[in-house]
Design a protein around this nucleic acid. Structure first.
Lengths: 133, 133
DNA sequence: GATGACGTTTACGTTAACGTAACGCTGCGT
DNA sequence: ACGCAGCGTTACGTTAACGTAAACGTCATC
């Protein structure tokens, strides 16, 4: 159960990513699965990291930012200034996201107005057509 | 006042874009300024289009989508099925944006939780340090 | 022992929206 | 006449995150 090691395919199925993606992350030093012969074997640690990676992506972090954060998580075993740094980066990211959200909201509002206008015109056309019959 | 024609530089200053951008839009058939000799001259129509283009970008439309919409605006002088099409595309876009916003909200919530956790740990560290003195 | 299924590496391709560089023409102020 | 500013075209560079293809090794099976 929850096998100690997963093959690349099992990882892919579990996290809905492609093998290419996992190998790519490896070249970016985001993952470093054990090697048995040529095969990659992903440990519990790799799974935890991948989970963090994917969450980071949802947060809008770049892979490079994620790499730095993971590095901090590792090195910062002994909770030191690293945690503070990670924390600050994350707060920065949060404010970026909130700004993004505000812009998106604004765009949505504008677009809705446009749509209302369009709907009114379409409505007029329908009435016109109905009246013409 | 509001000169009939604008040079490329005036356009750039007015809309905060670079010359490269305007020429790029031209190759993408989003704009088609008059030519006097070699120089480009932008008319009121071009300005209106650029305004729509930039708004479209804020909405998250791709340039290609914007091109199609502009085409519809043009051809659809006589309000026909075109308006309906434009309307539908825009509604589709709106739903995309709302989905996007939902995801962003979710990510923000998660990140905030993480931050709360981080803040708690930092707090612990401070207390520990204070107690140790 | 041939056929697949799955794994590996290496390397080039992709997409969007421009940036940047190279090179040429042209008008204008001195 | 000189030099520079500003416009023009053409074409290659950029960034991110993989996709895709080539070319090969290795089991397991038919």
């Amino acid at each position: 159960m929850t096998d100690e090691f997963l093959t690349i395919r099992q990882m892919c199925d579990a996290f809905e990513v492609t093998p290419r993606t996992l190998r790519f992350y490896e070249t970016k030093e985001l993952l470093s699965p054990r090697r048995v012969g040529q095969k990659r074997l992903y440990t519990r640690r790799d799974r935890a990291r991948l989970k963090l990676i994917l969450r980071g992506k949802r947060f809008g972090f770049s892979l490079e930012e994620i790499r730095q954060l993971l590095e901090l998580y590792d090195i910062g075993q002994g909770p030191e200034v690293q945690l503070r740094t990670t924390y600050d980066i994350a707060r920065q990211r949060l404010s970026d996201m909130e700004r993004q959200r505000a812009e998106l909201d604004e765009a949505i509002r504008e677009l809705k107005q446009q749509l209302a206008w369009g709907a009114a015109r379409l409505d007029e056309l329908e009435r016109g057509a109905a009246a013409a019959e």
